[in-house]
Amino acid sequence: MHYQVVVLDSEMGGAMEISSLAWQRALSGSDQGHYFNVDIYMGLCAGDQLGGTFEDNWVPGTKTLVFSADALDLTAGPNEWVSVALDTPYWFNGQQNLLIDLQWASANPSYSFYTWHWDTGVVRSVKATSLGSPSGILSTQMSEMTISGVLVLDQATFGAVKAVFTGAGR
């Protein structure tokens, strides 16, 4: 499975050091899911919508591996959130859109771990059931998720501080 979503910079609200992602389980399906050879990448995306070719959606040089595991086991009751802590926190600069890329080689077919999705109105996700496929199916739906980390001041705020400091000495 290969799944990409784009999160807009307006939704992020500024620079952030991202430390974990979480998804909310829906009401139906299994209370667990088991995934193998899982990789999660983060990086930047220049557009507000995605194209069908996975690699073309990255701003060149920004694709970063933030999580990798031989096995990932998720467990949650209906409407509960399940979180994945990143191996390496990702520094999001707040200047462009955030691209999140999930990949896994296989999953235990005995379980279907359903999560809530929402319709964004524009193409915000790409999905391919074959991990090796260079392109996927476009969709206006994407996973509801939470992004956790530390929000950081932007340069404009530091500029304002500098202006106040300069004025204070006059």
Partner: peptide, 28 residues
């Protein structure tokens, strides 16, 4: 004082609960 208050833990929720139709964390 500004820097101390500027770096704060946050959790952003992207999207909402609209569809659960056949979409696992993506698809198993």
């Amino acid at each position: 004082s500004v820097v101390t208050g500027a770096a704060s833990a946050a959790t952003l929720t992207i999207g909402g609960e609209e569809y659960s139709s056949g979409e696992p964390l993506c698809v198993s």
